[in-house]
Amino acid sequence: MVAAVRGAAACLVMKWSTALAMTRAMTWTTVLVWALLLGSRVATAEPAPQLQLTGLSEARLVTNVGLTVPRINFSCQASTAQLRRYLAAAREAAAEALQAFGHFNATIRPSIETREDCRDPALAIEAGPVTTIESVTIELPETVRQIESVSEFVANQRPSVGDPLDQAAYDALRDGILGRVQKAGYLDARYTRHELIVDPSTQSARIALSLEAGSRYRFGEVTIEQSILEPELARRLTGVPEGAPYTSRDLLAMNQNLTSTAYFESVSVRPILEERENLEVPVEISTYRNPRTSYELSAGYATDVGPRVGAEVTRRYVNKQGHQWSARSELSAIEQRLETSYT
């Protein structure tokens, strides 16, 4: 009987070993087949034309040109005429990409390069001398110069004479000044002059900005969507009175002041700029209230009283006057405490 069992076990082991060996063989065969298929696919993939850029050494110039030139959407069988049309567009785009960093006298030579069974468009580029800033004129009204965010921004971002021209930096300077002036309440501010004049013959550039601020706006009517407090109380909780000078900083303060109370779970403040008139900006505030009542349980241990448990109930708003009530109790073997408050 034992021999029969042992024989059956040996047979089972043999069959299992054979099956395992067959599985391994099939696994390696499958891997080999997939490898051959993938290798065949890679080997038989058709070549594609690539734009060849030579002559540039600065990484930022190479990157900007590469991001600006049009994508290649033709195959290696493209005609010479199609390649030339692409090169004309790529040459123009490359020139604009170089001008963004002050290179207005670049030399760009297009050509068609042949490799194996494909032809590539190519641009040989000499960036040439960089244009430098000859003069910077920024004219701002006195009221605007007194705005701290504006004066600090201009002091930090104003380019110096002799700096290489960077058109992105000029755009950031122009837009940054106007944006900060408008956030300070001068919503109708505009440039009467904003110029970047480049003279390629002398590799020089002149910057001129003149801003007209207009009148400063004030906060107008503030509408708060809520039903748990008296409207005037909710209005006072914003911390910004009607008629105060309009600033984006005070819009944020309104949100933070209301959110920091126990009444509201979330707050959204939106100025209705399209309805501003008489130098006043109406504001709309939407709220989502907190649950009226909260409960809290606690447990702990203290060396003086031993184990203790506690419970607290808070009524966040009792009435429309914003009154709040809470009760807190602590129980231990030697001490019982109950505290209540109404504010």
Rank of each mutant, 00 (worst) to 15 (best):
A168F: 14
G176I: 00
P164I: 15
A172T: 05
Q167F: 12
D175C: 06
L178Y: 13
V154L: 01
D188Q: 09
R158H: 03
T192Y: 04
R174E: 07
A168K: 11
Q167W: 11
Y191W: 01
Q182L: 11
L165W: 10
D166A: 02
G179T: 06
V181T: 02
G185S: 05
D188K: 09
R180P: 05
V154Q: 07
V161L: 13
L165K: 05
Y186W: 03
L187P: 00
A169D: 00
D175N: 07
L178M: 13
G185I: 04
R180K: 09
D171F: 13
L178Q: 12
A168I: 12
A155S: 11
P164C: 14
A168R: 04
R190N: 12
I177Q: 00
F153P: 13
Y170R: 02
G162H: 08
R193M: 08
G162D: 12
S160K: 06
R158A: 10
D163C: 15
L187Q: 07
T192H: 00
R190G: 12
F153M: 13
N156D: 10
R190L: 14
A169W: 02
A169M: 01
G162M: 12
D171Y: 10
P159V: 11
D175A: 05
N156R: 10
D166N: 08
R158T: 11
R180Q: 01
R193G: 03
R174T: 02
A155E: 09
Q157N: 15
D188M: 13
V154P: 05
A169G: 02
A168W: 12
R193T: 13
Y170F: 15
G162Y: 11
A172V: 06
R193E: 07
G162R: 05
V161T: 15
L165E: 08
G176A: 01
Q182I: 09
D175I: 03
G185R: 04
A169P: 03
N156M: 09
A169Y: 04
A168T: 14
L165A: 10
R180L: 01
Y186G: 00
R174P: 01
A184D: 10
L187W: 11
V161E: 15
P159R: 00
L178E: 14
N156L: 11
G176V: 04
D171A: 12
G162A: 11
G185H: 02
K183M: 07
R190I: 14
F153I: 14
N156V: 12
D175F: 04
